[in-house]
Amino acid sequence: MNYRDLPSMPVAAQSTESITTGDWRTIRPVLNKDLCDRCYHCWAFCPDVSVIVEEEGSFPKVDLNHCKGCGICSTECSKQAITMVREDL
């Protein structure tokens, strides 16, 4: 990109989805479906919009491209169904 490609005003409109914050992570949430009662607290409190619930009733999934591994989902899980597991190098 050079100066000719810039807009006349400093406007930004491209979604941050292209930024993969998943590589910040050192620990990763793992869901035990046997324990999950689908309260979706993990979804509600995720700062990174990285807990995906496709439709009401389905189990939450983690968007590992963006999840930063904070672990809030694990702490807030009402059934202790999410454990944080260390990432491999």
Partner: peptide
């Protein structure tokens, strides 16, 4: 009648963070 203006129909960010990668180019403009 500006080319860009803040409009809920077409959400954009005005004046967000620009890094050293493109700051010179914005100043040049």
């Amino acid at each position: 009648s500006p080319e860009f203006f803040a409009d809920t129909e077409n959400p954009m960010r005005f004046g967000g963070l620009v890094t050293p990668d493109l700051w010179t180019e914005f100043r040049y403009r």
